[in-house]
Design a protein around this nucleic acid. Structure first.
Length: 288
DNA sequence: CTCGACTCCTGCTGGC
DNA sequence: TGCCAGCAGGAGTCGA
């Protein structure tokens, strides 16, 4: 969102177009008309949802799903040789930049920045919401607390976990418990907190919850600072890959020694298991 | 109400 | 080299 705001905030959108009917759901009626000619009036984030506000118009809700990315390049930037047809200098509208594969939605500012929503798997979503109704939108209304805000305290997390039968891994992936953690950051936060992903949620309150809240905050803060995690598709708005994948403690590191264990002798190595259909990674020695 | 399973979709990897 | 199963940053929906 910060990368997108850098390019779009305060700008006027002179052109918008969709290249298919929708992603996870059909694009909302009037999306292109709402974007065209709009003045971008700030950004907001709620959990994994981004909201682009438009002056005097509904806000645009964006979720990247698993494979989505927003990419910006300038109209006059040199063509990247690996993209697009050879020698495609400019199309009928004078655009220098051919659309990328799976670029389903694109817009261009009067200042010449082109921003595309690229999403091969199409699990992403786009919707329009009246600004006054942002927080009551069906996709946002049920979200839990923002993990990086002061509202996310040990007491709040303990209350959400009380009585829960699910493993803590599944509870933290539940956006109603805390908004914004995904599969990578749940594994990483549980490692930092020394909690087994298999532990029953209801047994986390107490000393473990005391460690878990700062662990969640630090993982997210570090990941944002590193520009996110690139496994395959994800790139930042400027096209650069993220940097946090080089700092994973456990995610995708099965069989490798854990960074806390004393050495090959005392370390069983990081284990991969599947919980509710998704991979979890953890160190069985340091996480209990 | 609260779970887990299933589903949407494309693309890449690894085993044969 | 080709084919195919399995797996991937998410989350709404459904049935138990």
């Amino acid at each position: 969102m910060r990368g997108l705001a850098k390019v779009l905030d305060g700008q006027v959108i002179r052109h918008a177009e969709t290249r298919r009917e929708g992603l996870r759901w059909p694009f909302p009626a009037g999306l292109v008309a709402t974007l065209t000619g709009a003045h971008v009036d700030g950004f907001r984030r709620r959990g994994k949802y981004m909201l682009m506000r438009l002056a005097g118009r509904p806000s645009v809700l964006i979720h990247l799903g698993m494979s989505g990315r927003l990419v910006a390049r300038h109209r006059d930037a040199p063509l990247v040789p690996s993209l697009g047809p050879q020698g495609a200098a400019s199309d009928a509208r004078g655009h220098n930049q051919p659309p990328e594969l799976h670029e389903h939605l694109m817009l261009e500012t009067e200042s010449g920045w082109r921003v595309g929503f690229v999403d091969p798997r199409r699990f992403g979503s786009v919707d329009l919401i009246a600004r006054e109704a942002e927080d009551t939108h069906r996709l946002l209304a049920g979200l839990g607390p923002e993990p990086l805000e002061p509202e996310f305290t040990v007491a709040v997390l303990e209350a959400a976990l009380a009585g829960k039968i699910t493993p803590i891994k599944a509870a933290l992936l539940d956006q109603k418990v805390v908004a914004g953690l995904g599969n990578i950051y749940v594994s990483e936060a549980l490692f930092r907190a020394g909690i087994s992903p298999r532990r029953l949620s209801a047994t986390v309150p107490g000393a473990r919850a005391q460690r878990l809240v700062p662990a969640i905050k630090s993982v997210l803060t570090d990941a944002i600072e590193a520009g996110g995690s690139t496994l395959r598709d994800y790139v930042r708005v400027d096209g650069e890959v993220g940097g946090f994948q080089d700092r994973f403690d456990v995610y995708d590191r099965q069989g490798q020694p854990c960074r806390l264990c004393p050495g090959p002798k005392g370390c069983p190595g990081i284990v991969r298991l599947v919980q509710s259909g998704r991979s979890t990674f953890y160190c069985p020695r340091t996480q209990r």
